[in-house]
Nucleic acid binder design. Structure first.
Lengths: 356, 356
DNA sequence: GTTTAGCACTCTAATGCTGGGAGTGCTAAG
DNA sequence: CTTAGCACTCCCAGCATTAGAGTGCTAAAC
């Protein structure tokens, strides 16, 4: 099922009634977005308590840091800590309707040209279903297996390299060569590389080649010279690493909570300067199941007032990437969490089904 | 020099002084963003006129539709029509400093992997320099010249096609085949296609192939069969058409003019649902020089309150695409126009210099 | 000991009123 | 044609007022 990161400090024991009231309060606040007062809560809780009693409980909860008042006479709202407890201990998740899952599956399982397009598709989906910003981080490609390499002469000193990596990823790059190579030489070089290294990790390829180069610097025949020059440039720069795709940022503009224009701007800037967010998502790579960051728990100031719900997705048992949503702290966790979870599973399923 | 679209209706003759006052007013409003009153304008204009006189002139200009008052006693602001006249007849452009141009050139003339990356680079640049949203529309590829085609067998029934198009564009696509082909067959097919069609327009290729197919349906030898099946799938779908890249949308959040959250949201949505904007940019393709759309002149409701400044860029004399910026109507046209113009020229220059 | 009712208190948000400032339009004089 | 003067309009900021919501505390009830 879903596992949510529980804080290391643990939560103090709260008696049943207090927990129930806290739960009601958070749910209510998530629904309405208004601070919840003692009268309202007393009425809603279904516990047949007077507002005064509820007030006492709320005062305790405030003391403990789960709630706060925006000002003296304005009900209470959950703090980050309150949300955390809610998510960890109080939330009951409604698993998704099978029908809904089926719809998600169909929308994910569509033919795409490349992983970026798939990521776009899935983040659109997430954003559409949750009305939050959907994020899909593309696979960190720690393990890049070379399947095939080909060289095509383009002009005098330019060679097009085609790398087929992993399952079905294709990459092009154009390299400059010191001297012109003809098609036959290139073909031979490619043959050699494919024979030697297909199925190996790309870094191993690089290292192996460097070793060979050192060993046999002078005694190289013409073929090997070609191979080495090609290979050096081909594997020189890491294939440009991981990246992510965001969709539905505009949903964030609708959340009353985030309507401070300047904060919103910073948030959008953050989406563009990908680095920082990547770092956050990195942390989720090796957790399993849904993870939830509330407010600044992410250690990322711009996300004050936002929560991030993520889940990693796996291919052949290996965690490949992370997807999730970003929205106001006051989001409908009971819906969002199952959606993120299901989407991750479905994406994994699609990626695990070799098509073709 | 720069040419700006002049309205078909033409502008009524305004005497020199009136024009000068209008110019001053627009410039002032662009600077401060505050409605300009008669006193201020009288002081600024350097014409030694009393506020009362200025008032009369302003009243005339309002009558003619160049100005309007937000409310009874609050100075005047330019209308779309006012901006139009300003841009067409009053604006004196400061050509860019050579140094600035040099900086732009350096930032544009960088090695990139593909046209999308180049577009991103340039739109970032535009957005950075103007503090507006930069837009670069990628080439409409009416003329796609096939330079080279290669086939790589991937698995049983899947073949990777590499198309080298135009100058140095590379495209991959993976096709499903009816029966397995081995490397030799594919090589032969590629050789045939390259020999026959390299340098031809991709549509011609398609047509020629279809003709051949019809002519010789039965008498096909094995090579031709391979060629035909490959080619059919390869050239089946048009390479996915044009597209564009936007950068620096967040700048729009800073313009006080566009701070209505909901309007801003719609604008951002528009950036995502590319269709509409594409249509707008299409119109600019065949104009030469800088074009300016003010407010709803674009025929695009979401752009109310926004202006769009564009310029096409050409390669080998052929218009390939359009770039520009989108920002509040109240933008510094005298700076923005030269920047857009220069950027288009520089981009063209880069694209015209075959590197390698 | 827990729960409750009552009450005084606080704070917000909405409302209405006020005066000052900025700017206009009009008119009549220069 | 230009200008000074003046009445007028409108916005805005500040202030007081009010109603409403919610709190904390205390003392009584269970």
């Amino acid at each position: 099922m879903y596992s949510t990161e529980s804080m290391s400090s643990g939560h103090l024991a709260l008696n049943e009634r207090t927990q129930h009231l806290l739960k009601m309060l958070v749910e209510r606040y998530i629904r309405d977005g208004q601070p919840v007062g003692s009268r309202t809560l007393a009425r809603d809780a279904g516990l047949d308590l007077s507002p005064a009693t509820v007030r006492n409980v709320m005062a305790d909860l405030e003391e403990l840091g789960y709630l706060r008042s925006p000002h003296t006479s304005a009900g209470r709202v959950p703090t980050a800590r309150g949300y955390r407890f809610f998510v960890d201990a109080l939330l009951n998740l409604r698993p998704l309707d099978d029908q809904v899952v089926e719809i998600l599956r169909q929308r994910i399982d569509q033919p795409v040209q490349n992983r970026a397009e798939l990521a776009r598709l899935v983040s659109d989906l997430l954003s559409g279903v949750t009305h939050l910003a959907g994020v899909v981080m593309l696979p960190r490609r720690n393990v890049v297996t070379l399947r095939q390499v080909e060289f095509l002469p383009l002009s005098e000193n330019r060679v097009l390299v085609i790398l087929v990596l992993n399952a079905q990823e294709v990459q092009n790059r154009i390299i400059q060569t010191c001297r012109p190579y003809n098609a036959v030489e290139l073909q031979q070089a490619a043959n050699y590389l494919n024979a030697q290294f297909a199925g190996k990790d790309i870094r191993q390829v690089r290292e192996a080649l460097l070793r060979d180069l050192r060993e046999a610097r002078d005694s190289l025949d013409r073929l090997m010279q070609t191979v080495i020059e090609m290979a050096e440039q081909t594997f020189e720069t890491e294939p440009d690493g991981d990246d992510y795709v965001v969709a539905g940022q505009t949903h964030l503009m609708q959340c009353a909570d985030l309507s401070d224009l300047d904060k919103l701007r910073q948030l959008f800037e953050a989406f563009n300067h990908k680095r920082d967010l990547l770092h956050l998502f990195d942390q989720c790579l090796h957790a399993d199941g849904v993870q939830i960051f509330i407010g600044e728990e992410s250690g990322f100031v711009v996300l004050e007032g936002c929560s991030v719900v993520t889940a990693p997705y796996t291919v052949e048992g290996q965690v490949l990437g992370v997807l999730g949503v970003i929205g106001p702290t006051r989001m409908a966790y009971d819906r969002v969490i199952p959606v993120v979870d299901a989407t991750a599973r479905l994406l994994a399923a699609v990626l695990n089904t070799p098509q073709g």
